[in-house]
Amino acid sequence: MSISLHQISKTYKGISAVQDISFEVKPGELFGIIGPDGAGKTTLFRILTTLLLADTGTAVVAGMDVVEDYIAIRKSVGYMPGRFSLYQDLTVEENLQFFATIFGTTLERNYELIKEIYEQIEPFKTRRAGKLSGGMKQKLALCCALIHKPKVLFLDEPTTGVDPVSRKEFWDMLKRLQAKGITILVSTPYMDEAALCDRVALMQNGRIMEIDSPKKIVEKYPKAVYEIGAGERHKLIQVLRDFPYLYSVYPFGEYVHYTDSRSDLDIPELEEYLKANGLTGIYIGLTEPTIEDVFMEMAKE
C-alpha cells in the first residue's frame, strides 16, 4: 500500500477535526477526498505529511510510519498545501530553483517529469509569483511539489478558486502524472471532480461517509433520480416541497433533482400536480444520480 491509515482521530481545541479515519491508497492510484470546507481534509493531509500528530491511530506513507520515520517521509513525498504556498516576491524561475535546491536536486535532473507543466508557465518565468493568475500559480505550485520526483503526491485543494478551464487542465495533468507511476492523494470541494478519481472518500464533519470508486458509489444510490424542469424554477422547488410523496428536491444545473418517497413515481400524477399549481413548460425525466446526489443524501443522515 502506498498510503494506509488506521483509525486516525484528531481533536483541535475540543473540536473533533477528524474521527476514526481508515483507508488505503494503492500504489499508482489517484485517490480523491471529497468534501466541503471544514470536513477535515486539511487536517488529514497534515497528519499524512507529518506536520501534525494524530491523537490516536496509525498512518503509513510509502512504507514509512508518519511519526517514527517523519524525516524519511519528508524527503520522499511531494506536498502542495491549499492556497498555493509560493514565495510571492520571487519569480517563477526563482521559486522553482529554490525548491530544487532545498530538495537537493536541480531543475534539469527531473525536467522530464515537469516538462509539460513547466512549458505552459515558462513564458512567464521572470514574472513574480504574486502577479500570476490563479491557474498559473496552481501550475507553478505543482511543479514545485514535483521537483524532487516524489513517490507520493499530496495535493490539498489544488483547484479551489480556480476557473473551470484551469481545473480541467489540472486534472489532465494529474492523469498524466499518475500514468508515470506517482501515487496521488488529492482533496477537493468540487463534487464533479470526484468522477475523475480512481476511488474517492466522501468526507463531512471529520468523518468518512463512503469510500469506493465513483461509479460504484453512484450505483449504490438507492433511489431513482428524476430531473424536472419548468418555466419558473424557484416556484417549482417550492411546489415540489409541498408534494406529499416528496423525498428530496435539489436544484441541479438547468433542472431540479427529485426523488420520490415511494418506490415507483407516477409521472403523470406529478405532472398533473405541477400543472395544477400553475407551472408551465414542465419536463420530467429519469436521470443518473451524481456523486453530489449521493453526498447530499449521506450528509443528511
Binding site: 497534515r46 505529511t49 507529518t50 506536520l51 524525516i71 519528508r74 524527503k75 513525498v77 506536498y79 498545501p81 491549499g82 492556497r83 504556498s85 509560493l86 514565495y87 510571492q88 525548491f99 532545498i102 530538495f103 537537493g104 514545485c144 511539489a145
Partner: peptide, 13 residues
Amino acid sequence: ELGTMEILLVSPL
C-alpha cells in the same frame, strides 16, 4: 502566514 513553512517542514531541510 503564507503557508510556505509547511512546505519547508515537509522537505529534507
